[in-house]
Amino acid sequence: MGFDYEKYIRPGKLPHIWCPGCGHGIVMKGLIRAIDALSLDKDKTAIVSGIGCASRLPGYMDFCTLHTTHGRGVAFATGIKMARPEMNVLCVGGDGDGVAIGGNHFIHACRRNIDMTYLIMNNNIYGMTGGQFSPTTPFGAKASTTPYGNPDPPFDIAKLAIGAGATFVARGTAFHAAQIEKLLIEAIRHKGFSVVEILDSCPTTYGRRNKFKSVVEMMNQLKESAVPVAAAEKMSPEQLEGKVLTGVLYKENKPEYVAEYGKLVTRVQESMAG
């Protein structure tokens, strides 16, 4: 028997809605293996998302799941975590959801360092609405709203997260399937706001417009462009041209928001008691 994914998936929900070759399924499997490795209690784990293809993920998962409004997943998740600090809170979504319409919530969750894990499946496009450019669509790339090539420079999600104060930032790819699980295990264990960006494939609305012959070619590009952080240290800037760093990009320990608020409550209540 291989790994029993269906133990964590709601009965009757497969096959999922994602297109052939969409990497979201690969990422979801990595998430399931991470949850399994950490033995997270299904009843005490909330999985929250916004809107978009990636945000459909919670619907399959047999946990407390919340599919919210576009870009707002992290804000809903913040309410859950503040109200029930004992719950594990995971938030998932795509690039448009997370760093365009949800960009403000994203940077503030990073700053606040609230204990939750945000998994961003970055496929560089708005898939569900049919392939409009997102804040991570590469410069010059084609999308339905950049028919002459994208004049709009992209965000680097990981750098954005680090700059905003996230205390754990990692990047992987849908091709490096085993690594997804490892990064997520470390992210979920981390006390604070952890961001895991997975570079993903959208053959249907991105690949076809940008001359990828198949999803295999997209996967090969992910494979070839990814450079583990340790390997990158030994490479020259020329060698790193066009590459993306993968692995744990940043990690630090800083006061975590919910714990700090808990201390404040204790302090106030103690001063009331005399």
């Binding site: 028997m1 497969l14 399924g25």
Partner: peptide, 15 residues
Amino acid sequence: MQCELRCPDFAISVT
């Protein structure tokens, strides 16, 4: 196990 790991559709299991 690469096929099982990479199948996006939960369609492959290898024992």
